[in-house]
């Protein structure tokens, strides 16, 4: 059974379509990447899952029922814009959120101290948030979302503003949550994190889905590119969309850059060559990166996409 099931979700703000007929589902133990620029509708979708805002139409099922605060105790959420009460100590903050999620004080304190120890903040447990560095405060906030061992962990742009050490720490927490069976959804426009972590991902542009599937499927959706050296003309091999021959190397050998048709695995082309006695001296396969996929599908650079979309939204 899916932890989260979204079908035909639509959200309109003052005539602006923020989420457009979006459907997807997330299974337990799955790490699900939510990719798109800042105005793509990621945050809006997450807020609807949390029942902070209500959809215009469509259906959301969280643990098999409609969104609402009854799910609070099984959900962990880290918003994109982060902040805590400056005058509250780290451990009190974690306990406060734990109790808001229905935990008792003792359990919340114990789990909170465990998390702070893991985040190397055990000795700062009683420090006020206002006296901490930004990085420390962000770790405390991560702890508030993890304190209840959520079965559904939703992280909105969790890596933004983190230094590399804390980024590593966050990746570990995501993997750890997934290992104990939690469904993890995180949104990002940094493709490397998604590439490293995600089991499946969803590409959003202006509120509508451009792609949903595994990383392999995403890559396969773009034509692969490979460089091969052969004496024959490789451009007429089935599955090759386009081929360009480079300069001759020696004795009639040429370097060919081959662009395959979408969905054609490079292995098929290699098989065809060996089956037809085409001798090859070089075979370099270049898989498209997620970045390439993003640029191709969303039509803009993921890092710059955020800003551009924000301006449109404003």
């Amino acid at each position: 059974m899916s932890v989260l099931e979204v079908s035909n979700l639509v959200k309109r703000f003052d005539g602006v379509l923020a989420v457009d007929d979006l459907s997807f589902s997330v299974a337990p133990g799955e790490i699900f990447g939510f990719l798109g620029g800042n105005g793509a509708g990621k945050t809006t979708t997450l807020r609807m899952v949390l029942d902070i805002i209500r959809p215009t139409s469509g259906n959301i099922q969280v643990f098999g029922s409609a969104p609402g605060r009854r799910n609070t105790q099984a959900i962990g959420f880290l918003p994109e814009e982060r902040g805590l009460y400056a005058g509250m100590s780290a451990i009190d903050t974690i306990i406060y959120f734990g109790r808001l999620k229905g935990m008792d004080t003792g359990t919340a304190r114990r789990r909170g101290m465990d998390l702070l120890a893991r985040f190397d903040l055990a000795d700062r447990a009683k420090s006020d948030i206002g006296d901490m560095s930004k990085g420390m405060a962000q770790k405390v906030q991560l702890a508030t979302s993890l304190v209840n061992d959520p079965e559904l962990l939703m992280l909105d742009e969790p890596f933004s503003g983190l230094d590399p050490v804390n980024q590593g720490l966050l990746e570990n927490e995501i993997l750890r949550a997934s290992e104990r069976g939690a469904a993890v959804i995180f949104s990002t426009h940094v493709m490397q994190h998604a590439e490293r972590l995600c089991d499946r991902l969803l590409l959003l542009k202006k509120g509508s889905k451009r792609f949903e599937g595994t990383l392999e499927e995403a890559r396969a959706a773009l034509p692969a590119r490979l460089i091969a050296s052969a004496k024959e003309d490789l451009s007429r091999i089935p599955g090759v969309a386009r081929a360009a021959s480079g300069d001759g190397i020696e004795d009639g050998w040429h370097d060919w850059t081959l662009y395959l048709e979408p969905g054609v695995p490079a292995a098929d082309v290699l098989e065809h060559c060996t089956a037809n006695g085409i001798a090859l001296r070089r075979w370099d396969e270049h898989k498209p990166s997620l970045h390439d996929v993003f640029v191709r599908m969303v039509g803009e650079d993921p890092a710059g996409a955020g800003k551009a979309n924000q301006e449109i939204a404003a």
Partner: peptide, 17 residues
Amino acid sequence: VEERSNKLLESLLACIR
């Protein structure tokens, strides 16, 4: 005002109506 300017409303609203 602190809750709004410190951006902690969203975290709160995830837990409470």
